[in-house]
Write a protein that binds this DNA or RNA. Structure first.
Lengths: 337, 337
DNA sequence: TTGTAAGCGTTATCAG
DNA sequence: CTGATAACGCTTACAA
């Protein structure tokens, strides 16, 4: 009769196989020395009983839980969910498991999420949005929780940042507009004010200023389709109607495009050129065919997981720079050359 | 000097507070008897040291890990990611944590995902896609892992199924087409063949047959926008071009609509009426304004988490029926009355 | 109310 | 190669 109440344990397997529990443990530990004979006896008993190693107990002693926390807000958003998919896939492939923790857009919820990660003794936490307070970063450090910050700013020891060439991409966007013959430039962004959003905004504005061009600038609400819709209305209502809008996010861009088409009967790209950022799936849909910059999600996932596997890279903060290549489609006049 | 190498433990806190570790444990156990005095001493020490209860160790003994596994394929898809958002939020609110496990569309990966869930001693697993082999269901049962099957068929003891009124919704779709004056009906679906997809297909076809109406029927690929695009091309190429298409999924519907507009220059709903299912966010975007059936994601999440909290409802299989209300927008002629 | 001690399911250490 | 035995960090009788 296996176990008292719940799951079957190594003791049960050992009893059935007629060996010690140590033998069972060794059978399920990759680099351990067991004779073929006992090994097969154990395997057979385990199979019959339906035994699965208890990773909680294992993690307790080995101090390697295999748990990695994914922390962020707006998890159902196209870009976010894609990033989560990539991360969970790669974590699984490396024998780990992801726990997913939702936050709202406030930093304090990021802090409680990190505490939760510590309580489950996660090996690392990947922060997708929000910014942990520095006292919490310290707490994480003290509890051996490594931090991966994606498109965030704060740098701490034992943590890594992954950043994109946001500002440069924004400059490329501006150049593309000019090459397409656009002259009345506009910028549409949310009020979220995250580091990457800010970099895109500033990159665009700085380059325009350098060239002596004015930019109609509008910031509104969270990063969402609805915000894009509202931004589009505001921008296109103006007397001097813009003929090009750089949106700091594809979601915003979709909203702007729909506002232009369905509320102002404008044609894209003839009356208005639009460029976004992220390359969410919808950007490639026929209804939008949005020219944008592709978030290198696979590369981001790879960088994060590789860093985790890099056991002792815990010396000082690190920054990994990746680039977001342009995806040219049909929302800008011309062919991009 | 706290801990050897890693995180700070109850022992450290006890030492600093000058109490036993049991006192520390009690302080962090909701219904335990500790004097105000020791409690505050413990709290202070814990704060200073940055102590967080180790849920792994706690789960080892209390047998309540608080872990729930979310298992499914195509996690980055709009409907799936929304469901995941709701589930993680509700799980968090009930003091639990979600681990996310990706599968491809094969059932065998669902099995390995469930084994992973067992290894982490999850209290339950929510299966969003694929179907666990019945031997694995048995394995789960033996290891105390409860199963929540969303829109799946298999019923086992200690598990619950959540189902929608798919067939009825399909009948309503058909009636709506007829009321709008459409006569050349078509059905577009993927080849996934999941229970809910099948129910929608069969509901539509059965109702049409009952009324003696022929239906042009096309099934193709996975459930995706690209499949929708291809389905649209196949359907609209026909000599007897359909004037109404019921798509078993919004993603398919978006593809069909884009094919109709951009590859056949048709106007929706004038030339073609379309109805989908799921009510993904994009369905409400101006570019689509798709009439569809809303997945009651909040209700699904609530039902799942409530059932988990229902401690001893482990007697026999249960089925929970929920309804997907119609969301009337602009992809069908008329006003739906 | 408090502390002591046993036990949860593992792995690591150390004899044999 | 194998089996005792001691951790790991926690909860929970049990006794004080």
């Amino acid at each position: 009769m296996p176990g008292r109440k719940n799951s079957v344990s190594a003791k049960d397997v050992a009893a059935r196989a007629g060996v010690s529990r140590a033998a069972v443990s060794r059978t399920f530990t990759p680099g351990a020395s067991v004779s073929k004979e006992t090994r097969s006896k154990v395997l057979e008993a385990a199979e019959a009983l339906g035994y699965q190693v208890n990773h909680l107990a294992r993690g307790l002693i080995s101090r390697k839980t295999g748990i990695v926390a994914l922390i962020g807000a707006d998890l159902a958003t196209p870009y976010r969910s894609e990033l989560i998919r990539v991360l969970t896939e790669r974590l699984q492939a490396s024998g780990r498991v992801a726990i997913l923790i939702n936050t709202d857009r406030s930093d304090s919820t990021v802090d409680v999420a990190l505490q939760q990660a510590i309580r489950y003794r996660a090996e690392a936490a990947v922060v997708l949005s929000g910014m942990p307070e520095s006292s919490i970063s310290e707490l994480c450090h003290r509890n051996g929780l490594r931090l991966v910050l994606i498109n965030r700013d704060d740098a701490h020891t034992g943590s890594v940042q992954i950043r994109l060439n946001d500002a440069e991409a924004a400059r490329v966007a501006l150049a593309s507009f000019l090459r397409a013959g656009c002259r009345r430039l506009a910028l549409a962004s949310s009020q979220a004010g995250t580091p990457s959003l800010l970099d895109r905004e500033n990159g665009f504005l700085a380059e325009a200023e350098k060239r002596g061009l004015p930019v109609l600038c509008e910031r509104l609400g969270p990063t969402s389709y609805e915000s894009g819709l509202a931004l589009g209305e505001r921008l296109l209502m103006r007397a001097e109607r813009p003929d090009a809008v750089f949106c700091t996010t594809d979601l915003l861009a979709c909203g702007v495009m729909d506002a232009a088409r369905h509320r102002f009967s404008l044609s894209i790209p003839n009356d208005l050129s639009v460029i976004g950022f992220d390359d969410i799936e919808q950007a490639s849909w026929d209804a939008y065919a949005l020219t944008t910059f592709r978030q290198p999600v696979e590369e981001i996932g790879a960088a994060a997981v590789d860093w985790l596997s890099d056991g002792d890279a815990a010396d000082g903060p690190r920054i990994i720079h990746l680039t977001a290549p342009m995806a040219w489609r049909k929302s800008v006049r011309g062919n991009g050359k």
